[in-house]
């Protein structure tokens, strides 16, 4: 019950965070030197027509009033209409959300599956050749830009080795819609061809996104494990003759995980930010790709909507991380 209470409390707090995001996004889109009214009115519009459009869109109102109007529409689920697709933005985003969730989850899973074992082994073999190699790789993992890595991987794995597809989410028919995550839907409906194909398409973008995140997880796991190895419960467990596997992968890792889980919450931001670029490069039909398109088209309502959704994903992830944190560290739950 305290866990649920804590969960609920964080959820309420996150509404405040989202409100802040709306204000910031709104302010930014208003300082950008482009005139949405002119864009909507079209190339051949006269000054009069543009002024009329501006009045129609409420863009001539004071800024605070525009913000309140925007918030009011948001509460009704109305994010405006995209200039580019001429469809409600909320609908556009909802249709593209599953692709981004699938990519983000896939990358995070990959990053955790690589990052934690490598971090633990690197800590256990501290100072060895392996540890140094891992350090070089993780530092590169931080330093390398997503778009560069994406293009290099495309060159290597697609152009030269022809192992993976260049872009897209699936070839042929998508599996029947349940969650919108192709891999999950394929799994649920037993559509093995679609599962294989979806995974095959998912591989490259998620590797690209996962690498910097994995690097972060490796660093924090390594530090956490080293710190935990120095704590007195380790020699005690050794003195009582517990198997090393239990001491390392349960006792030490559990103690190290508290900081790693916090970090996973924080790198979600990096991951979602990276997704914007990576989706554009791999033509992945998610929120990121949509955001890039909207920016290119100066479609501000759409940019604002997408930014808001991505922020919401980040906030929700952190609420979940917080709950996981409480499970990993029961003392935190009591605080």
């Amino acid at each position: 019950m305290p866990l649920l209470l804590r969960f609920g409390k964080r959820l309420v707090w996150s509404i405040g965070t989202l409100l802040g995001v709306v204000v910031i996004v709104f302010a930014i889109s208003n300082v950008i030197p482009a005139d949405p009214a002119a864009l909507v009115a079209g190339d051949s519009a006269t000054a009069e027509q543009i002024a009329e459009t501006r009045a129609r869109l409420g863009l001539d109102l004071p800024l605070y009033q525009q913000l309140f109007n925007y918030l009011g529409r948001l509460l009704q689920g109305d994010m405006g209409t995209s200039i580019f697709t001429a469809r409600p933005i909320a609908e556009d985003l909802l249709g593209r959300l599953p692709a981004t969730i699938e990519l983000a989850l896939g990358s995070m899973l990959l990053a955790v599956l690589i990052g934690i074992p490598v971090g633990v082994i690197s800590a256990l073999k501290r100072g060895s050749l392996l540890d140094h190699a891992v350090r070089v790789l993780t530092v590169s993992g931080f330093a390398v830009a997503n778009f560069w890595l994406a293009i290099m991987l495309q060159l290597l794995l697609v152009m030269w080795l022809d192992l993976l597809p260049l872009f897209g989410r699936i070839e042929g028919d998508a599996p029947a819609f349940i969650t919108g995550l192709y891999t999950v839907d394929a799994l649920l409906t037993g559509n093995w061809r679609a599962l294989g194909d979806a995974l095959w398409h998912l591989a490259l973008p998620s590797i690209t996104l996962a690498l910097p995140v994995a690097a972060t997880i490796v660093r924090f796991t390594r530090t956490g494990v080293l710190e935990a190895l120095g704590r007195p419960f380790v020699p005690y467990a050794q003195a009582m003759g517990l198997p090393p596997v239990i001491i390392v992968w349960r006792y030490v890792l559990r103690a190290a995980l508290t900081s790693v889980v916090t970090q996973i919450g924080l790198v979600t931001g990096t991951l979602l930010g990276g997704a914007v670029v990576v989706e554009a490069i791999f033509d992945w039909p998610g929120l990121g790709g949509y955001t890039v398109n909207s920016i290119m088209m100066s479609d501000y309502s759409a940019v604002m909507g997408a930014a808001l959704w991505i922020a919401a994903m980040y906030v929700i992830t952190n609420v979940i991380v917080d709950a996981v944190q409480a499970m990993v560290d029961p003392r935190a739950a009591a605080r």
Partner: peptide, 30 residues
């Protein structure tokens, strides 16, 4: 031998137990 025929009582009962596992779990592991 260790933990079976020869066991150990540590000097520091504060740090020697794992802070995140419940007492029952630590005994069960042993």
């Amino acid at each position: 031998i260790r933990g079976r025929a020869i066991t150990f009582v540590p000097q520091d009962p504060f740090g020697s137990l794992h802070p995140l596992y419940r007492v029952g779990d630590q005994i069960a592991d042993l």
